[in-house]
Design a protein around this nucleic acid. Structure first.
Lengths: 340, 340
DNA sequence: CTGAAAGCGCTTACAG
DNA sequence: CTGAAAGCGCTTACAG
């Protein structure tokens, strides 16, 4: 920058202003500076800028994994919302491991992000404390807890589970199962578990046994997970009539396994998934599912942060916002009324 | 940090050493410093550290999109390889748009990454220049050009196309088509196009017409893309016997469309995909494909960078490395010899 | 509209 | 094994 200022015959301050807010500089001076920048191929150093201004324009996003199209969509939505305002995402993976999440959060704090977006509302005690003391906006996404650490953008996974159960019950079934992953140990999918919990509760409310909820394998689930847990479920209850899978991925895996075993879907077994993944829509038969707008979650989180970070002085800034984007039951071809 | 040094009764330099290389500090002093750090909840500021040391430990990764499991796998592989050495990925999306890629590269340079990993070997002239002048290691991934900007880790997409054609030819087919996306304009998938080019070349070498190569829609392809382009292909050539899709995603979409139209795969049409996506494996019938180890590409790129960035003084550092990870034809159920 | 001074929180490079 | 000084490349906060 001092090379530029020398070549342009102005102070560094003026160069800085040309870059940050050109309107503050006279047309003539600006031209000189721009020419010098061009000539020298000068690229401003935002590391230095960040240190000086105490703003990095980094926003940390902590997700279980990026190889899940729902989270990838949220990341994409977040990145798109923030891009125009010149923020850079710092993405961290946890692989559904709370210890790893804590480690990632600690490491990220050293990069001094302006805000943090974190998937999930269950954290280690230490991680929660670090987040609470961070002194920057925090947005928890993919669920809406009663008391977020700061802000939350998501939906109720518990209610998703209840809605799933009610749909299957409304079709006349009484032997109803579910496919999920294990909820013990450090590596677990709390959101999926919430859905199973809501599912079981609604079953019991209707006087239906909740003993066919299978929890096997570690998150993240896969097509293979769906195929295998379907096998376990059938071994336990050959007469099962309807199944809710915590993810369309598992639902598709279960559907393919039914194909292989010669079980007709939905005539013999109804299957309901979650997530409205592309593949569920394209499957044959197309998977009934519960849809969440993952990209919108990312976008709303981004917009919320922008409204806080870019707020004018004295402007009203949202406090402890809880945004529920809801969800939607989509009945396609894999769920059908009993006996029809 | 100066708070810590005061509380511990040592200089800032000693605190810095405890954090960077504890072995340089006496056991006793180290304990005092650690205690002070703990008590104050001190979190080092790596922005300041980066400015001072002229190393950010950022590595930029520029990908077309993260909502493609192949690129997500590469990102994951890269992140895993770099994580132990304490590097943070700075991920940028281009959505297959070369102008956007140039913009992203320019913006990223301001963050002073220690290295850049970029998917693809086709860039705008300006983007190539910026990369060449960056003065840091550059790794192009997902192809292995004759003359990389710096390093390259990937495979020959052109040869993938040739292998695909040869497989279908070896099964006895002569009416052979392909499904890809448009290759004009700024938004395009050069890797997919390379595969189509190799495919067409191998067809012609065998004396087979290459007029059934469909290029429709913009990258990234989708299940829907496969379904629609299959429709276009059938409209043009109802007698088509075998199809190569530039991605398993398109292949699955085409397969589902065949289901819907009552076309039997592989008895009436053989389908070969690319990428060995999970879903292709789980599909019924399972998709024949060409497999690339996407995660390995990321990992090898990461290891290459580590060997350069973490090299001891005077250690031999690879120059202009070209790593070809190859690919593998996997014949499953959607390709079958003519007339059997 | 423009500039001189100070400082952001570290590490480098010496010195002892 | 430890420390004092200088400096990384910007922006803040004044001053004119």
């Amino acid at each position: 920058m001092s090379d530029v200022s020398k070549l342009a015959g102005v102070s560094k301050m003026t160069v800085s202003r040309v870059l940050a807010d050109p309107a503050l500089v006279s047309e003539e001076t600006r031209q000189k500076v721009m020419k010098a920048i061009e000539k020298l191929g000068y690229v401003p150093d935002r590391i230095a800028g960040s240190l000086s201004s105490r703003r990095t324009n980094f926003i940390t996003a902590i997700l279980p994994t990026l190889t899940n199209s729902n989270f990838a969509d949220s990341a994409q939505g977040l990145a798109n919302a923030l891009r125009a305002a010149d923020y850079q995402l710092l993405i961290g993976y946890t692989m559904y491991d709370l210890q790893e999440e804590e480690r990632v959060i600690r490491t990220m704090m050293e990069r001094r992000p302006d805000a943090i977006v974190v998937a999930g509302t269950v954290h280690t005690k230490m991680a929660s404390e670090v987040l609470m003391r961070a002194g920057i906006p925090i947005v928890e996404i993919w669920d809406v807890p009663e008391h977020p650490i700061d802000h939350a953008v998501g939906f109720s996974n518990y209610e998703v589970g209840r809605t799933a159960a009610k749909h299957l019950i409304s079709l006349g079934f009484t032997r109803i199962g579910a496919l999920g992953s294990r909820a013990d140990g450090d590596v677990k999918d709390w959101r999926g578990e919430s859905r199973l919990l809501g599912f079981g509760a609604a079953l019991r409310e209707a006087g239906i046994a909740d003993d066919l909820i299978i929890r096997e394998g570690s998150a993240p689930v896969s097509y293979d997970h769906g195929a295998k847990t379907l096998g376990s479920l059938l071994a336990k209850a050959p007469d099962v009539e309807a199944i809710f899978a915590v993810s369309d991925i598992s639902a598709v895996g279960a559907l393919m396994e039914c194909h292989r075993r010669g079980i007709h879907v939905p005539d013999q077994i109804s299957i309901l998934g979650f997530g409205d993944f592309d593949i569920g829509r394209q499957c044959y038969p197309a998977i009934s599912t519960i849809r969440v707008d993952a990209q919108m979650i990312g976008r709303k989180a981004g917009e919320l942060l922008l409204s806080i970070l870019e707020a004018e002085k004295d402007a009203a800034v949202p406090e402890g916002a809880r945004v529920d984007v809801g969800f939607q039951l989509i009945v396609r071809e894999t769920t059908k009324r009993l006996g029809r």
